[in-house]
Write a protein that binds this DNA or RNA. Structure first.
Lengths: 187, 187
DNA sequence: TTGAACGTTCAGAATTTTCTGAAAGAATAA
DNA sequence: TTATTCTTTCAGAAAATTCTGAACGTTCAA
């Protein structure tokens, strides 16, 4: 693996973006490198390519492991471990979604529910609780929905994506033909 | 406005979460405060409630303004500015999505497209380009789709959300009744 | 025109996050 | 056993981010 300008720009950009997705720059760079490398890479090679210390590479790979985004491989006769990404780009995106849900959404929903259970001590708290309930319901909706989308087959998801806002038409159409039957009941 | 334990826990949690949504802890706290306060707040009050400096409040409000998440209000006879959130919780979520798309997705898509246009200098770059194309297509799909969902009416969006994975059934149903017609064409 | 009450800015301080490299652990072969 | 080659850990260093508060700008009333 060689650091050409093309590969550098990709790796550095994903380093910056990484922090938006829940991990730091180095972790993002390591991941970017593994994604675009056809061959699995060993820790030393990663460190050399990115110009970071061996310890940092180790921590980064550990982090990526906890996200289940990398796989360890052994080459016969080699003692070193080689790393590469697992699954398709889709699988990876799913895993990031899933992991962020667990780490961010779930604790937030729990907190909001706890607050909703409390007795409001005054009108200010009552108003706050009302807002918090709205936020909770929205987040819960989005969370459940995205989760159910993830269980859809890739083909169906693709159809759905291609539909775009045309999905509105499909809903109308379905409504008309099913008559009284509420499509929501099919969920 | 008073800092009760209930309000504190909400505000602090959203401070932590804020960093995941693209702004820092203080900005998250200021926003949380404005969301659950029925009355608009002035900058001094915000600073006092959160125990942060006046300058920090000013910077935080500026940041929230750039996200179009707060509105300035003037009370008659008052020289101070009062701040509160604009629109419903849904509107706010939309605005955050929209803003993140502009700040993160668009630049990423541009970079990936640029790389896709380059000539691959060797087989390694060719492989990298292939992966980058996959990533680009996925991100573009998701971006366009979420954008088109945002243009849907709130009721339709709600129906869709409630459908959950049941949307798969609706797609099958539509397929059957439309026969040869590919629903994707309606998009 | 002065002073009071507000808002903004930004250099440097404080804090938080990330990274390094030395030490220690583990596997293997001789 | 010892040497070799790899990995991991973590205390402290380095870097990045955030925050403070003083200086300055603006508006308005007297």
């Amino acid at each position: 693996m060689q650091m050409t300008p093309m590969i550098e720009s990709f790796v550095y950009h994903f380093g910056e973006m990484g922090s938006r997705w829940g991990f730091n720059r180095t972790v993002g760079q390591i991941y970017a490198l593994l994604v675009i490398s056809e061959q699995p890479l060993c820790a030393n090679e990663i460190g050399d390519l990115l110009g970071i210390s061996r310890g940092n590479v180790s921590m980064g790979l550990k982090e990526l492991g906890s996200w289940q985004l990398v796989q360890v491989q052994h080459k016969p006769g080699e003692r070193r471990e080689f790393y590469h990404t697992r699954g398709s780009i889709w699988d990876m995106a799913n895993r990031v979604f899933e992991e962020r849900r667990k780490r961010e959404m779930d604790p937030t929903l729990t907190l909001l529910r706890d607050i909703m259970m409390d007795e409001a001590a005054n009108p200010e708290e009552a108003f706050a609780q009302q807002r918090i309930t709205e936020i909770h319901d929205l987040l819960e909706n989005i969370t459940e929905w995205t989760q159910s989308l993830q269980s859809l087959s890739p083909e169906k998801l693709n159809t759905l994506m291609k539909l775009g806002s045309g999905v509105g038409k499909v809903l109308e159409f379905t409504d008309k033909f099913l008559g009284k039957k509420d499509p929501a009941k099919q969920a």
